[in-house]
Design a protein around this nucleic acid. Structure first.
Lengths: 155, 155
DNA sequence: ATCGATGCAAAAGTTTTGCATATAC
DNA sequence: GTATATGCAAAACTTTTGCATCGAT
């Protein structure tokens, strides 16, 4: 699924506003980071993103520290979301649009996405029960995907 | 909530069997790690566990590497479970007994637990839909707890 | 001109690994 | 006695920070 240029322009616009309203400065590095996450569907470590940018903008001379700093900001602003998959580190993905959760295959690492309204509703109820002001939620089902099950049976 | 000695004896028995059936060796270090997680209700980093053991068994001379190695084994065996809270690292908790999920306060870091059957059921349905052999699931609601909300309003 | 943002490199923190020794079986 | 587990220390990673300089406003 390719993202359209128009969609990106809208996001960029939102991003500019967000930066302005946070009294921050608009820099090309920040834009590159947003761009990298937007155009590459999937889940990326800060280092992945850093490398994507180096590849796409070889002379941009961006630093990994900037990637970390910007991801922090983007996450707080809900433009990207992060999760921890597997044993190590954090991965980021573009975070606008309908909320979704993940199925993670422990064998091949593949990630499947789903959305379920019943669960979403229940989560809100639970937060309310605890007098919790919910700002986010996150769900992950781990297991073995059908493809890997077949492979195992084939052995 | 204090755990009873009897309950621990049962776990220990299970642990021994598990080790035997995995063709591993039973060592006092492995027992100390299980003990530390069992008797201290909560969520611990590997380092927390390491320190708990040093404190309880000052002359045991355990190494942090052993803690990491054993936690990996315990997690694979479902005797403990791990989650990533906040920005950094992984925390472990004792993992037998009824499955539960977590509410995490982003302000004070406190963790609340809940269990909801509807969500559990839905998760199973979703795994089935994807032909996924589910081995675990994990849900986290983030937000601000009622105590912190009050504090903020008081300011 | 000002003040925040950046890159770099160092530091801090976390997890894994190699290896000689100790210990369970 | 043999093979695995351990502690230690080093290495490998990941993330954060300090600081001089750059660049957006």
């Amino acid at each position: 699924m390719e993202q359209t240029i128009e969609a990106y322009e809208n996001i960029l616009e939102e991003f500019r506003k967000l930066i302005k309203s946070s009294n921050l400065k608009y820099t090309k590095q920040r834009e590159f980071i947003l761009e990298a996450i937007f155009y590459n569907k999937g889940h990326f470590t800060p280092e992945d993103i850093y490398n994507l940018i180096l590849k796409k903008h070889p002379k941009s001379n961006i630093g990994i520290a900037t990637v970390y700093r910007t991801l922090g900001f983007l996450e707080n602003s809900n433009l990207v979301t992060s999760i921890s998959f597997g044993t190590q580190g954090k991965k980021y993905e573009f975070g606008l649009g309908k909320h979704h959760d993940h199925l993670v295959c422990l064998s091949c690492g593949k990630i499947f996405e789903f959305h379920n309204e019943t669960i979403e509703r229940k989560q809100k109820e639970i937060a309310k029960e605890f007098n919790f002001k919910m700002t986010g939620h996150f769900m992950k089902i781990t297991g073995i995907c059908s493809e890997c099950i077949e492979k195992m049976e084939g052995e």
